[in-house]
């Protein structure tokens, strides 16, 4: 069952772009205690239209910063960030984001929360209610239109946040650890939902996560990042059609590879990973 509106194709073609993200020579520094600190170091990445890209990496590798730059909440960077050729200078309704915390407004019903996203779109008023209803159906929340966020479970609230992000039909959807706050079971469930939604929607998606399994299950490609400063360490192609089977041997093999890379990486980089110095080792 795909509850997605049929008019999708027409509306997409009416838009100028298809959702191609190009990141080139991207650098980002923060000033911490008066010292400039490099957060992102020379990031180069092209996300194809309609592709699902996952980004994994240890905390502090700048992956959330990267998303904030792409969505336009942070605009101080050097290098190039372009969506369909257009340089990213601020936020835009062409770029949606789902945060780790759902960030629904507690005084608005689910319906009102989603409709808020349409406030400054050129969607005719008369059609808004229908579009909101379609997206509530898309994330399987029919029947909860009038519910307030505190009446929803964590998984439901996060799906509502996904619906809000999708309702403007962004060319690019960014997901910043969207399932990070969910319990393990809900997480698996929402992962499958997210895959189904992406297949119905086919807009470009970039998801940041610290869960390698999740990254592989959803991503066409998995970008592995290393910290201090944040760099792209490796790009893994996941050559499996969607919908995927979690038990696929390929996914498991890739997971082992990436985990090995992430954990060994610390040693190779020197200081970062060696939090514990074993005296016996140093003595030799």
């Amino acid at each position: 069952m795909t509850p997605y509106p049929h008019a999708r194709e027409d509306r997409l073609s009416a838009k100028t772009g298809r959702g191609e993200l190009i990141v080139s020579d991207l650098n980002k520094s923060f000033t911490i205690n008066g010292q400039p600190r490099r957060i992102l170091d020379n990031i180069n990445l092209t996300v194809r239209p309609g592709e699902f890209v996952s980004i994994v990496g240890a905390s502090g590798c700048g992956k959330s910063t990267l998303l904030r730059l792409i969505v336009g909440l942070d605009t101080e960077y050097s290098g190039e960030l372009r969506l369909d050729g257009e340089r990213i200078a601020t936020t835009s309704l062409d770029r949606g984001i789902v945060f780790q915390d759902h960030r629904l407004f507690p005084w608005m019903t689910l319906e009102q929360n989603i409709e808020l996203a349409l406030l400054n779109t050129d969607t005719p008023r008369a059609r808004r209610a229908q579009i909101v209803a379609d997206h509530i159906a898309l994330v399987n929340l029919k029947g909860f239109e009038k519910a307030y966020p505190h009446q929803l479970s964590g998984g439901m609230a996060q799906r509502a946040a996904i619906a809000r992000a999708l309702v403007t039909e962004p060319r690019l959807l960014l997901l910043d650890e969207p399932l990070g706050a969910l319990d393990a079971l809900t997480r698996v469930h929402v992962q499958s939902e997210l895959q189904r939604i992406w297949m119905a929607q086919r807009s470009t998606m970039v998801m940041v996560t610290h869960d390698v399994e999740e990254a592989l299950y959803l991503g066409d490609r998995v970008i592995v990042m290393s910290p201090n400063p944040g760099r792209i360490r490796r790009i893994v192609e996941v050559d499996l059609p969607h919908p995927r089977d979690r038990r696929s041997p390929l996914l498991h093999r890739l997971k082992d590879e990436i985990l090995a890379e992430l954990t060994s990486g610390a040693d190779a980089d020197g200081d970062a990973g060696n939090l514990v110095h074993l005296p016996s080792r140093e003595a030799r």
Partner: peptide
């Protein structure tokens, strides 16, 4: 602060921000 970010993502104008976010949040 998070809520202002959401408002920015959805391109809310200042009057909309005041009426729909700031006022209800302080009620």
């Amino acid at each position: 602060r998070n809520w202002f970010e959401v408002a920015k993502v959805y391109r809310l104008r200042l009057p909309q921000l005041i009426r729909r976010i700031l006022l209800p949040a302080t009620v």
